[in-house]
Design a protein around this nucleic acid. Structure first.
Lengths: 342, 342
DNA sequence: GACTCGCCTCAAAGCGCTTTGGATGCCTTT
DNA sequence: AAAGGCATCCAAAGCGCTTTGAGGCGAGTC
């Protein structure tokens, strides 16, 4: 069923039918009702391709997700982020166009999406240090919002982020205040901006507490479970070994936990673990006393919703000043931390 | 840059330029090279909207992902499945259109995608018992491939699946052969077809071993980590308690493991755990002796690739007989199982 | 030299929609 | 009674591409 057929069936012109369906005032209310009813009955809805060719708007948003080539890994946070964004798009009538590409190759996809006029805007995932994508998107005049920030970029841009540095500083403070002096950092890849900031926060806190930074106790890799396990095993075998571990993701923290237990230590007694928690739906850390880990939590699904809303707003008003949004975080004390052992 | 501008720049007609770029034989090789070079230089690529309006092909595939409303949960397997599918689409020049909808509401989205002519085909995720979506898609004449199967559906359709029943039977056999007689099943939601089949396999094996089915030891829920923990805690508190747990996903198995350890038992000695493993990139179970869990593994990313290929083939040839594909599985013996305690 | 045959190239139609710029008819107003 | 206003509706252009049906041109054939 297309517009022509529908309008013939109704004995009206295509113009009138189109106007009726799109809510223009030039159509009488009775006609509109008749048209809407007929459209529903015929299960008609306008072809997006034709419509967006005519309007010049794609009504779709591009999400280009990097796949960590080393581990062929898709960071699990993307699933929940996208779920949040998708809710917003559904309500606003937008579609989500998804591509997964080896990390570092996003730029070609952005260019292609622009050239093909396939999307009205883009969500930039996993920004890196001095990320060139921001300049590229500005040049392409493609509206975008960054999930995270990119250090060493001066031009303003819209972003949604977590206060990574402050949060990791506070988390480290929590450990030092419990008497821990040998604290390990199990970070994400530090080419990623968020991981870089987290390390700064960690180092800030160590400096405050007059503790020295030990490079052997700082790891930075893709945040798999196995990474947490292996890094922890290696560090627990040192002497002295760290008594506390600050971890970048809950999945990695599960690996840390496994290593701690394997080594015959008790979590929260012999060894403390504090982790960042993206509040993934299938992997809830729990709240209050039931929390598995002491953690700093921030819902990545909420971040997805926020970023999507910001982007749609920006598409509507491309020339307004950039907005930024810092997500809330919650500190949860669970059973995985305790005073440093003697 | 559009076709008109490009052809004017080259002093050729739009027809010739279009033909040159699309590889039609009516254009001399020298002209073609000139055109291709100019297109590249101008970063021209045809507007997908205009192109697909003209060709009638959307060059895009719809993935409609159910969100388990109860836990607002996106099953983590979707991330890896989609990563696999995306690789295939990228090579073939297709886009992926993603929607996340509350489970049970997929049908409206299918209808809308069809009416809007937004996609050429659909991947059906998470089929349920007697799933009405298959009949709907047949009626809509929208090519599709199902990831999984739907019991109680007679009409043929294309699918990619894992031999759930057989695999769970063998897994249970492995446990009984180790002397376990009190085996618990921590299954996914049994409205999901895969979970239903897994239960059948579990019961098959119990019957073979002359063991009775105890409803208190069979759980079926969304496969979160917390679910594994809670169900296991509850069952370990019974007397007698199960000595072995058969689990539907690695994430849930991590929860089971946590409960086992919390209760003061040793994994693989006092309590055995055997799990299905989708081989998620950030959560590798490991192979051989390094495997965390004894597990049946099947790569969901491979399943995504396979399903995508089947769908593209079907779009090319809609009237060919339906194909089906049963994924390989690997049985890995890890440290989480052992002989039943006395 | 006329004619056919390939090889290249083109103008124009059409994909399904939105939107511009009227046209029509009816009711008020002067 | 003529003019103006308003509420409805319409024809046609245009979005950027593919594709049909045809035309131009040089080489080969008789």
């Amino acid at each position: 069923m297309n517009l022509k057929e529908l309008s013939e069936k109704l004995g009206l012109s295509q113009t009138t039918v189109s106007r009726a369906l799109n809510g223009y005032p030039e159509v009488s209310e009775t006609t509109r009702k008749r048209v809407v009813a007929a459209a529903r009955a015929a299960n008609y809805s306008p072809s997006t391709r034709a419509r967006s060719l005519a309007t010049g708007r794609a009504m779709s948003i591009g999400h280009v997700i990097p796949v960590a080539t080393r581990h062929e890994m898709v960071n699990p946070v993307f699933g929940d982020f996208i779920a949040g964004a998708s809710e917003v798009y559904a309500v606003a009538g937008y579609e989500m166009l998804l591509s997964l590409v080896p990390d570092g190759e996003e730029e070609d996809v952005y260019r292609a999406l622009k050239a093909k006029a396939a999307v009205d805007g883009i969500v930039v995932h996993a920004p890196r240090m001095a990320d060139p994508r921001i300049a590229l998107l500005d040049e392409l005049a493609l509206p975008f919002v960054v999930h995270g920030r990119a250090s060493e970029i001066d031009t303003p841009y819209s972003w949604v982020d977590v206060p990574n540095r402050g949060v990791f500083r506070e988390a480290t403070d929590h450990l030092t205040s419990q008497g821990h002096t040998r604290i390990a950092l199990i970070n994400g890849q530090e080419t990623m901006d968020f991981a870089f900031r987290r390390r700064l926060g960690f180092e800030d806190a160590l400096a405050d507490a007059n503790l020295s930074v030990d490079a052997r106790w700082m790891h930075a890799q893709d945040m798999t479970e196995a990474y947490g396990y292996e890094a922890t095993c290696a560090m627990l075998a040192m002497s002295p070994a760290p008594t506390a571990f600050l971890v970048a993701s809950l999945i990695t923290a599960l690996g840390v936990q496994r290593a701690v237990i394997d080594a015959g230590f008790r979590l929260g007694k012999d060894v403390s673990v504090l982790t960042f928690d993206d509040d993934l739906s299938y992997l809830r850390n729990g709240t209050g006393e039931n929390a598995i880990f002491t953690a700093v939590r921030s819902s990545v699904r909420d971040a997805g919703r926020t970023a999507a809303n910001m982007l749609l707003e920006r598409i509507e008003n491309p020339n307004v000043a950039h907005k930024t949004h810092m997500m809330d975080t919650q500190f949860v004390v669970g059973g995985s931390t305790g005073p440093a052992p003697d």
